[in-house]
Design a protein around this nucleic acid. Structure first.
Lengths: 194, 194
DNA sequence: GTCTATATCGCGATAGAC
DNA sequence: GTCTATCGCGATATAGAC
Protein backbone atom coordinates (compact mmCIF):
# COMPACT_ATOMS: atom_id res chain seq x y z
CA UNK A 1 0.00 0.00 0.00
CA UNK A 2 2.11 2.85 -1.22
CA UNK A 3 -0.94 5.04 -1.54
CA UNK A 4 -1.71 7.52 1.21
CA UNK A 5 -4.85 6.81 3.15
CA UNK A 6 -7.69 9.00 1.92
CA UNK A 7 -6.24 9.32 -1.58
CA UNK A 8 -8.32 7.68 -4.28
CA UNK A 9 -7.56 9.60 -7.42
CA UNK A 10 -7.91 6.63 -9.73
CA UNK A 11 -11.33 5.47 -8.55
CA UNK A 12 -13.05 8.60 -7.29
CA UNK A 13 -13.41 10.06 -10.79
CA UNK A 14 -15.36 7.12 -12.19
CA UNK A 15 -17.42 6.86 -9.02
CA UNK A 16 -18.42 10.50 -9.36
CA UNK A 17 -19.58 9.91 -12.92
CA UNK A 18 -21.50 6.80 -11.90
CA UNK A 19 -23.23 8.65 -9.08
CA UNK A 20 -24.03 11.60 -11.32
CA UNK A 21 -25.42 9.29 -13.99
CA UNK A 22 -27.68 7.53 -11.52
CA UNK A 23 -28.87 10.71 -9.82
CA UNK A 24 -29.38 12.69 -13.03
CA UNK A 25 -31.41 9.81 -14.46
CA UNK A 26 -33.53 9.52 -11.35
CA UNK A 27 -34.20 13.14 -10.44
CA UNK A 28 -33.04 15.20 -13.40
CA UNK A 29 -29.93 17.33 -13.82
CA UNK A 30 -31.44 20.54 -12.49
CA UNK A 31 -32.90 18.84 -9.44
CA UNK A 32 -29.62 17.19 -8.37
CA UNK A 33 -27.09 19.14 -6.34
CA UNK A 34 -23.35 18.71 -6.23
CA UNK A 35 -23.76 17.99 -2.53
CA UNK A 36 -26.01 15.03 -3.33
CA UNK A 37 -23.47 13.63 -5.75
CA UNK A 38 -20.71 14.07 -3.21
CA UNK A 39 -22.75 12.29 -0.56
CA UNK A 40 -23.30 9.30 -2.87
CA UNK A 41 -19.57 9.06 -3.47
CA UNK A 42 -18.70 9.62 0.17
CA UNK A 43 -16.72 12.84 -0.14
CA UNK A 44 -17.39 16.48 0.57
CA UNK A 45 -18.81 18.68 -2.17
CA UNK A 46 -15.61 20.64 -2.63
CA UNK A 47 -13.67 17.50 -3.48
CA UNK A 48 -15.73 16.98 -6.65
CA UNK A 49 -13.99 19.95 -8.20
CA UNK A 50 -10.74 18.01 -8.32
CA UNK A 51 -12.40 15.90 -11.02
CA UNK A 52 -14.71 18.21 -12.90
CA UNK A 53 -14.50 21.94 -13.50
CA UNK A 54 -18.24 22.31 -12.94
CA UNK A 55 -21.61 20.59 -12.97
CA UNK A 56 -22.19 21.25 -16.65
CA UNK A 57 -19.05 19.34 -17.61
CA UNK A 58 -20.23 16.41 -15.57
CA UNK A 59 -23.41 16.23 -17.64
CA UNK A 60 -21.66 16.81 -20.93
CA UNK A 61 -19.05 14.11 -20.28
CA UNK A 62 -21.80 11.59 -19.59
CA UNK A 63 -23.66 12.40 -22.79
CA UNK A 64 -20.52 12.66 -24.91
CA UNK A 65 -19.25 9.35 -23.56
CA UNK A 66 -22.55 7.69 -24.31
CA UNK A 67 -22.62 8.91 -27.91
CA UNK A 68 -18.99 7.90 -28.43
CA UNK A 69 -19.76 4.44 -27.08
CA UNK A 70 -22.76 4.18 -29.38
CA UNK A 71 -20.87 5.12 -32.53
CA UNK A 72 -17.89 2.96 -31.61
CA UNK A 73 -20.04 -0.08 -30.96
CA UNK A 74 -21.96 0.52 -34.15
CA UNK A 75 -18.74 0.79 -36.16
CA UNK A 76 -17.52 -2.51 -34.76
CA UNK A 77 -20.55 -4.40 -36.08
CA UNK A 78 -20.31 -6.66 -39.05
CA UNK A 79 -21.80 -5.14 -42.20
CA UNK A 80 -24.10 -7.56 -44.05
CA UNK A 81 -24.57 -7.26 -47.79
CA UNK A 82 -28.29 -6.88 -48.34
CA UNK A 83 -30.32 -3.90 -47.10
CA UNK A 84 -32.69 -6.23 -45.28
CA UNK A 85 -29.85 -7.91 -43.38
CA UNK A 86 -28.30 -4.54 -42.62
CA UNK A 87 -31.61 -3.29 -41.29
CA UNK A 88 -32.04 -6.33 -39.08
CA UNK A 89 -28.53 -5.90 -37.72
CA UNK A 90 -29.21 -2.25 -37.00
CA UNK A 91 -32.53 -2.99 -35.33
CA UNK A 92 -31.15 -5.65 -33.02
CA UNK A 93 -28.06 -3.60 -32.25
CA UNK A 94 -30.06 -0.51 -31.36
CA UNK A 95 -32.37 -2.35 -29.00
CA UNK A 96 -29.59 -4.30 -27.36
CA UNK A 97 -27.26 -1.35 -26.91
CA UNK A 98 -29.96 0.84 -25.47
CA UNK A 99 -31.36 -1.80 -23.12
CA UNK A 100 -27.85 -2.34 -21.76
CA UNK A 101 -27.49 1.26 -20.50
CA UNK A 102 -30.95 2.63 -19.71
CA UNK A 103 -29.74 5.47 -17.52
CA UNK A 104 -27.34 6.89 -20.10
CA UNK A 105 -30.07 6.63 -22.74
CA UNK A 106 -32.53 8.35 -20.46
CA UNK A 107 -30.40 11.38 -19.69
CA UNK A 108 -29.29 11.58 -23.33
CA UNK A 109 -32.90 12.24 -24.25
CA UNK A 110 -34.05 14.20 -21.23
CA UNK A 111 -31.16 16.49 -20.42
CA UNK A 112 -30.29 17.90 -23.83
CA UNK A 113 -31.84 21.23 -22.94
CA UNK A 114 -29.56 21.55 -19.94
CA UNK A 115 -26.47 21.56 -22.12
CA UNK A 116 -24.84 24.81 -23.12
CA UNK A 117 -25.33 25.75 -26.77
CA UNK A 118 -21.81 24.58 -27.69
CA UNK A 119 -22.15 21.26 -25.92
CA UNK A 120 -25.62 20.72 -27.37
CA UNK A 121 -24.33 21.10 -30.89
CA UNK A 122 -21.64 18.48 -30.34
CA UNK A 123 -24.13 15.94 -29.06
CA UNK A 124 -26.65 16.70 -31.77
CA UNK A 125 -24.04 16.23 -34.47
CA UNK A 126 -23.12 12.84 -33.06
CA UNK A 127 -26.77 11.86 -32.92
CA UNK A 128 -27.17 12.96 -36.52
CA UNK A 129 -24.25 10.78 -37.55
CA UNK A 130 -25.89 7.79 -35.92
CA UNK A 131 -29.27 8.44 -37.50
CA UNK A 132 -27.71 8.82 -40.92
CA UNK A 133 -26.46 5.24 -40.68
CA UNK A 134 -30.05 4.04 -40.59
CA UNK A 135 -31.11 6.44 -43.28
CA UNK A 136 -28.33 5.14 -45.56
CA UNK A 137 -29.69 1.62 -45.17
CA UNK A 138 -33.21 2.74 -46.02
CA UNK A 139 -32.05 4.74 -49.02
CA UNK A 140 -30.00 1.86 -50.42
CA UNK A 141 -32.91 -0.49 -49.91
CA UNK A 142 -35.26 1.83 -51.69
CA UNK A 143 -32.89 2.32 -54.61
CA UNK A 144 -32.61 -1.45 -54.94
CA UNK A 145 -36.36 -1.77 -54.88
CA UNK A 146 -36.52 -3.95 -51.75
CA UNK A 147 -37.85 -1.27 -49.39
CA UNK A 148 -40.92 0.83 -49.98
CA UNK A 149 -40.71 3.91 -47.79
CA UNK A 150 -42.45 7.21 -48.50
CA UNK A 151 -39.66 9.32 -46.98
CA UNK A 152 -36.34 7.97 -45.76
CA UNK A 153 -35.75 10.75 -43.24
CA UNK A 154 -39.13 10.41 -41.59
CA UNK A 155 -38.95 6.64 -41.63
CA UNK A 156 -35.54 6.84 -39.98
CA UNK A 157 -36.89 8.96 -37.16
CA UNK A 158 -40.02 6.84 -36.81
CA UNK A 159 -38.03 3.61 -36.51
CA UNK A 160 -35.58 5.07 -34.00
CA UNK A 161 -38.42 6.46 -31.89
CA UNK A 162 -40.14 3.09 -31.92
CA UNK A 163 -36.99 1.15 -31.03
CA UNK A 164 -35.82 3.51 -28.32
CA UNK A 165 -39.28 3.32 -26.81
CA UNK A 166 -38.44 -0.18 -25.63
CA UNK A 167 -36.48 1.40 -22.81
CA UNK A 168 -39.63 2.88 -21.31
CA UNK A 169 -41.15 -0.47 -20.48
CA UNK A 170 -38.59 -3.29 -20.73
CA UNK A 171 -37.32 -4.74 -17.48
CA UNK A 172 -34.86 -7.62 -17.52
CA UNK A 173 -36.25 -10.71 -15.85
CA UNK A 174 -39.69 -9.88 -17.14
CA UNK A 175 -42.02 -11.80 -19.42
CA UNK A 176 -39.81 -11.57 -22.50
CA UNK A 177 -36.11 -12.04 -23.10
CA UNK A 178 -34.15 -9.33 -24.84
CA UNK A 179 -33.81 -11.58 -27.87
CA UNK A 180 -37.57 -12.09 -28.05
CA UNK A 181 -38.12 -8.34 -27.88
CA UNK A 182 -35.60 -7.79 -30.67
CA UNK A 183 -37.43 -10.32 -32.82
CA UNK A 184 -40.84 -8.72 -32.23
CA UNK A 185 -39.55 -5.27 -33.12
CA UNK A 186 -37.61 -6.53 -36.11
CA UNK A 187 -40.81 -8.10 -37.38
CA UNK A 188 -42.61 -4.76 -37.15
CA UNK A 189 -39.76 -2.82 -38.73
CA UNK A 190 -39.39 -5.27 -41.58
CA UNK A 191 -43.08 -5.21 -42.39
CA UNK A 192 -43.28 -1.43 -42.13
CA UNK A 193 -40.63 -0.85 -44.80
CA UNK A 194 -41.41 -3.63 -47.28
CA UNK B 1 -65.70 48.97 -15.77
CA UNK B 2 -66.83 47.88 -12.35
CA UNK B 3 -63.64 46.03 -11.77
CA UNK B 4 -60.99 47.62 -9.58
CA UNK B 5 -57.78 48.55 -11.37
CA UNK B 6 -55.11 45.94 -10.69
CA UNK B 7 -57.64 43.19 -10.15
CA UNK B 8 -57.54 40.44 -12.77
CA UNK B 9 -58.76 37.34 -11.05
CA UNK B 10 -60.45 35.89 -14.09
CA UNK B 11 -57.50 36.14 -16.45
CA UNK B 12 -54.44 35.94 -14.22
CA UNK B 13 -55.02 32.28 -13.39
CA UNK B 14 -54.98 31.10 -17.02
CA UNK B 15 -52.06 33.37 -17.81
CA UNK B 16 -50.07 31.80 -14.99
CA UNK B 17 -50.73 28.33 -16.37
CA UNK B 18 -49.80 29.40 -19.88
CA UNK B 19 -46.56 30.94 -18.68
CA UNK B 20 -45.74 27.90 -16.58
CA UNK B 21 -46.44 25.58 -19.51
CA UNK B 22 -44.16 27.52 -21.82
CA UNK B 23 -41.35 27.87 -19.29
CA UNK B 24 -41.52 24.29 -18.02
CA UNK B 25 -41.40 23.05 -21.62
CA UNK B 26 -38.46 25.24 -22.47
CA UNK B 27 -36.26 24.95 -19.40
CA UNK B 28 -37.67 22.11 -17.34
CA UNK B 29 -39.73 22.20 -14.17
CA UNK B 30 -36.81 22.12 -11.75
CA UNK B 31 -34.95 24.85 -13.61
CA UNK B 32 -37.86 27.30 -13.63
CA UNK B 33 -38.48 29.53 -10.61
CA UNK B 34 -41.72 30.99 -9.40
CA UNK B 35 -40.11 34.39 -9.91
CA UNK B 36 -39.64 33.65 -13.61
CA UNK B 37 -43.25 32.62 -14.00
CA UNK B 38 -44.40 35.74 -12.17
CA UNK B 39 -42.24 37.92 -14.39
CA UNK B 40 -43.78 36.40 -17.53
CA UNK B 41 -47.23 37.16 -16.19
CA UNK B 42 -46.32 40.60 -14.95
CA UNK B 43 -46.95 40.15 -11.24
CA UNK B 44 -44.78 39.65 -8.20
CA UNK B 45 -43.91 36.13 -7.09
CA UNK B 46 -46.08 36.24 -4.01
CA UNK B 47 -49.19 36.92 -6.08
CA UNK B 48 -48.93 33.51 -7.73
CA UNK B 49 -49.97 31.91 -4.48
CA UNK B 50 -53.44 33.35 -4.85
CA UNK B 51 -53.91 30.90 -7.72
CA UNK B 52 -51.90 27.83 -6.83
CA UNK B 53 -50.98 26.40 -3.45
CA UNK B 54 -47.47 25.60 -4.65
CA UNK B 55 -45.26 24.91 -7.64
CA UNK B 56 -46.03 21.18 -7.64
CA UNK B 57 -49.75 21.84 -8.11
CA UNK B 58 -48.96 24.05 -11.06
CA UNK B 59 -47.17 21.15 -12.77
CA UNK B 60 -49.79 18.61 -11.84
CA UNK B 61 -52.67 20.76 -13.10
CA UNK B 62 -50.96 21.12 -16.46
CA UNK B 63 -50.42 17.38 -16.83
CA UNK B 64 -53.83 16.44 -15.51
CA UNK B 65 -55.51 18.93 -17.81
CA UNK B 66 -53.61 17.56 -20.77
CA UNK B 67 -54.61 13.98 -20.06
CA UNK B 68 -58.23 14.98 -19.51
CA UNK B 69 -58.23 16.83 -22.82
CA UNK B 70 -56.72 13.81 -24.53
CA UNK B 71 -59.28 11.35 -23.22
CA UNK B 72 -62.18 13.73 -23.83
CA UNK B 73 -61.14 14.38 -27.43
CA UNK B 74 -60.61 10.69 -28.01
CA UNK B 75 -64.07 9.87 -26.62
CA UNK B 76 -65.65 12.41 -28.96
CA UNK B 77 -64.30 10.68 -32.06
CA UNK B 78 -66.49 8.66 -34.31
CA UNK B 79 -66.00 4.92 -33.90
CA UNK B 80 -65.66 3.08 -37.21
CA UNK B 81 -66.68 -0.55 -37.52
CA UNK B 82 -63.63 -2.39 -38.78
CA UNK B 83 -60.41 -2.72 -36.80
CA UNK B 84 -58.45 -1.27 -39.70
CA UNK B 85 -60.62 1.84 -39.86
CA UNK B 86 -60.49 2.20 -36.09
CA UNK B 87 -56.70 1.96 -36.19
CA UNK B 88 -56.47 4.59 -38.90
CA UNK B 89 -58.74 6.90 -36.92
CA UNK B 90 -56.61 6.39 -33.82
CA UNK B 91 -53.36 6.98 -35.70
CA UNK B 92 -54.50 10.21 -37.31
CA UNK B 93 -56.10 11.42 -34.09
CA UNK B 94 -52.98 10.75 -32.04
CA UNK B 95 -50.69 12.60 -34.43
CA UNK B 96 -53.05 15.53 -34.87
CA UNK B 97 -53.83 15.95 -31.20
CA UNK B 98 -50.19 15.78 -30.18
CA UNK B 99 -48.96 18.11 -32.91
CA UNK B 100 -51.54 20.67 -31.82
CA UNK B 101 -50.10 21.02 -28.32
CA UNK B 102 -46.37 20.22 -28.41
CA UNK B 103 -45.55 21.92 -25.11
CA UNK B 104 -48.12 20.01 -23.09
CA UNK B 105 -46.99 16.77 -24.72
CA UNK B 106 -43.39 17.57 -23.99
CA UNK B 107 -43.82 18.21 -20.29
CA UNK B 108 -46.16 15.24 -20.00
CA UNK B 109 -43.26 13.02 -21.01
CA UNK B 110 -40.37 14.88 -19.44
CA UNK B 111 -41.66 15.99 -16.08
CA UNK B 112 -43.31 12.83 -14.78
CA UNK B 113 -40.46 12.29 -12.34
CA UNK B 114 -41.07 15.68 -10.80
CA UNK B 115 -44.56 14.71 -9.70
CA UNK B 116 -45.19 13.53 -6.18
CA UNK B 117 -45.96 9.83 -5.90
CA UNK B 118 -49.70 10.44 -5.57
CA UNK B 119 -49.86 12.80 -8.52
CA UNK B 120 -47.73 10.47 -10.62
CA UNK B 121 -50.11 7.59 -10.09
CA UNK B 122 -53.07 9.66 -11.26
CA UNK B 123 -51.32 10.64 -14.48
CA UNK B 124 -50.06 7.13 -15.09
CA UNK B 125 -53.54 5.69 -14.72
CA UNK B 126 -54.91 8.15 -17.24
CA UNK B 127 -52.13 7.30 -19.62
CA UNK B 128 -52.88 3.62 -19.17
CA UNK B 129 -56.53 4.23 -20.02
CA UNK B 130 -55.53 5.93 -23.24
CA UNK B 131 -53.11 3.17 -24.23
CA UNK B 132 -55.70 0.51 -23.59
CA UNK B 133 -57.89 2.07 -26.28
CA UNK B 134 -55.24 1.25 -28.84
CA UNK B 135 -54.63 -2.17 -27.38
CA UNK B 136 -58.35 -2.95 -27.65
CA UNK B 137 -58.25 -2.16 -31.34
CA UNK B 138 -55.25 -4.40 -31.89
CA UNK B 139 -56.77 -7.25 -29.90
CA UNK B 140 -60.06 -7.08 -31.78
CA UNK B 141 -58.21 -7.01 -35.08
CA UNK B 142 -56.16 -10.01 -34.14
CA UNK B 143 -59.20 -11.98 -33.01
CA UNK B 144 -60.87 -11.21 -36.32
CA UNK B 145 -57.77 -12.34 -38.18
CA UNK B 146 -57.09 -9.02 -39.88
CA UNK B 147 -54.07 -8.01 -37.78
CA UNK B 148 -51.00 -10.11 -37.20
CA UNK B 149 -49.25 -8.85 -34.10
CA UNK B 150 -46.94 -10.93 -31.92
CA UNK B 151 -47.94 -9.15 -28.70
CA UNK B 152 -50.71 -6.57 -28.42
CA UNK B 153 -49.22 -4.80 -25.41
CA UNK B 154 -45.80 -4.35 -26.96
CA UNK B 155 -47.26 -3.37 -30.30
CA UNK B 156 -49.39 -0.77 -28.53
CA UNK B 157 -46.36 0.80 -26.90
CA UNK B 158 -44.31 0.59 -30.08
CA UNK B 159 -46.96 2.35 -32.13
CA UNK B 160 -47.49 5.08 -29.56
CA UNK B 161 -43.75 5.69 -29.26
CA UNK B 162 -43.47 5.93 -33.02
CA UNK B 163 -46.41 8.30 -33.37
CA UNK B 164 -45.49 10.55 -30.49
CA UNK B 165 -42.00 10.81 -31.94
CA UNK B 166 -43.44 13.04 -34.64
CA UNK B 167 -43.39 15.85 -32.12
CA UNK B 168 -39.59 15.79 -31.94
CA UNK B 169 -39.12 16.87 -35.53
CA UNK B 170 -42.36 18.23 -37.04
CA UNK B 171 -42.60 21.98 -37.50
CA UNK B 172 -45.68 23.49 -39.09
CA UNK B 173 -44.86 25.32 -42.28
CA UNK B 174 -42.17 22.76 -43.08
CA UNK B 175 -41.80 20.41 -46.00
CA UNK B 176 -44.86 18.32 -45.18
CA UNK B 177 -48.39 19.14 -44.17
CA UNK B 178 -49.87 17.55 -41.07
CA UNK B 179 -52.15 15.50 -43.27
CA UNK B 180 -49.22 14.18 -45.30
CA UNK B 181 -47.41 13.21 -42.13
CA UNK B 182 -50.49 11.39 -40.86
CA UNK B 183 -50.70 9.45 -44.12
CA UNK B 184 -47.03 8.45 -44.04
CA UNK B 185 -47.31 7.19 -40.47
CA UNK B 186 -50.60 5.46 -41.10
CA UNK B 187 -48.96 3.63 -43.98
CA UNK B 188 -46.20 2.39 -41.67
CA UNK B 189 -48.60 1.41 -38.89
CA UNK B 190 -50.92 -0.43 -41.26
CA UNK B 191 -48.12 -2.44 -42.81
CA UNK B 192 -46.54 -3.22 -39.43
CA UNK B 193 -49.68 -4.89 -38.07
CA UNK B 194 -51.01 -6.70 -41.17
C1' DG C 1 -55.68 40.77 -5.42
C1' DT C 2 -51.26 42.51 -5.46
C1' DC C 3 -47.65 44.56 -3.28
C1' DT C 4 -43.08 44.74 -0.41
C1' DA C 5 -40.40 42.50 2.76
C1' DT C 6 -38.62 38.61 4.76
C1' DA C 7 -37.98 33.88 6.98
C1' DT C 8 -35.58 29.87 5.95
C1' DC C 9 -33.05 27.23 3.30
C1' DG C 10 -29.96 25.21 -0.21
C1' DC C 11 -27.36 26.14 -4.26
C1' DG C 12 -22.51 26.21 -7.15
C1' DA C 13 -18.16 27.25 -6.51
C1' DT C 14 -13.81 28.70 -4.07
C1' DA C 15 -10.06 29.40 -0.34
C1' DG C 16 -6.87 27.67 2.48
C1' DA C 17 -5.47 24.21 6.20
C1' DC C 18 -3.70 19.64 6.46
C1' DG D 1 -6.69 14.85 -2.56
C1' DT D 2 -9.85 15.90 0.84
C1' DC D 3 -11.32 18.60 4.40
C1' DT D 4 -13.92 22.71 6.73
C1' DA D 5 -15.67 27.07 6.14
C1' DT D 6 -17.61 30.47 3.52
C1' DC D 7 -19.04 33.80 -0.28
C1' DG D 8 -22.71 35.40 -2.99
C1' DC D 9 -26.77 34.28 -4.65
C1' DG D 10 -31.45 32.66 -5.56
C1' DA D 11 -34.95 29.41 -4.27
C1' DT D 12 -40.06 28.54 -2.19
C1' DA D 13 -43.24 30.17 0.54
C1' DT D 14 -45.41 33.38 3.93
C1' DA D 15 -46.84 37.85 6.50
C1' DG D 16 -48.93 41.94 6.60
C1' DA D 17 -49.77 46.67 4.40
C1' DC D 18 -52.74 48.73 1.02
Amino acid sequence: MARTAGSHSDITGPRIREAALRLFAQHGYAAVSMRQIAKEVGVQAGALYNYTPDKQSLLFDLLKGHMDDLLTARAALKKPDTPEDRLETFTRFHIGFHLDRPEAVFISYMELRNLTAENFKIIEDLRGAYESELEDILRDGREQGVFHVADTKITTLAIIAMLTGVNTWYRSGGRLSQEEVETIYWDMVRKAVT
